[in-house]
Simulated scan of single mutants.
Amino acid sequence: MTRQIDELGGITLLGSQKTQYPNGYTPAILEVFNNKHPENDYFVKFTCPEFTSLCPITGQPDFATIHIRYIPDVKMVESKSLKLYLFGFRNHGDFHEDCINIIMKDLIALMQPKYIEVFGEFTPRGGIAIHPFANYGKPGSRFEELAQTRLFNHDMQ
């Protein structure tokens, strides 16, 4: 089913046959559309098993699986724009923890979700795997408490 761009709030990347891949970190590439069910609380989960970024000191590539989970409010991130955004990190030099926090903050600024968490499973380099986790719950809402609970218990295995 094809929808008009106006219904989707200005989506321009989805369906484009002339995709331009970013050469670096580009948060402006992210696009949103309206959540048709803002009265429902539900999770949307993205898994990116081919994330790459660069070590800011050595320039060596780091590989990770990035998990993004969020409870949308009014806006939702469009998946192709998210893919291109994450792809842009391949030439971006930052520590693992910074990448995860940058991704989360960019998505908060874009969508203002009720809740969001970003988890990175970076492959070991030098014998150590780093798995940063960052989350956010809308202040003054029940999702603020959810964020605290999930932060304190996210890796209690």
Rank of each mutant, 00 (worst) to 15 (best):
Q4Y: 11
D6F: 14
L8F: 07
I11C: 06
L13N: 02
L13W: 01
L13K: 05
S16I: 09
Q17A: 10
T19A: 11
T19R: 15
Y21R: 09
P22H: 04
G24N: 14
T26F: 09
P27K: 08
A28D: 15
N34D: 14
N35V: 02
H37Y: 11
P38R: 09
F43A: 06
F46E: 01
P49E: 07
F51L: 09
T52S: 05
S53R: 01
T58A: 08
Q60S: 12
P61W: 14
F63E: 04
T65Y: 06
I68L: 02
P72M: 02
K75R: 13
M76K: 02
V77H: 00
L84E: 04
L84I: 06
F89P: 00
R90W: 10
H92C: 08
F95L: 09
F95A: 03
I100Q: 00
I102G: 01
I103S: 00
I103A: 00
D106I: 05
L107W: 02
M111E: 06
I116T: 00
G120D: 04
E121L: 13
E121D: 15
E121S: 14
P124C: 09
G127Q: 06
I128P: 08
A129R: 04
F133I: 11
G137T: 03
P139G: 07
F152I: 12
M156I: 12
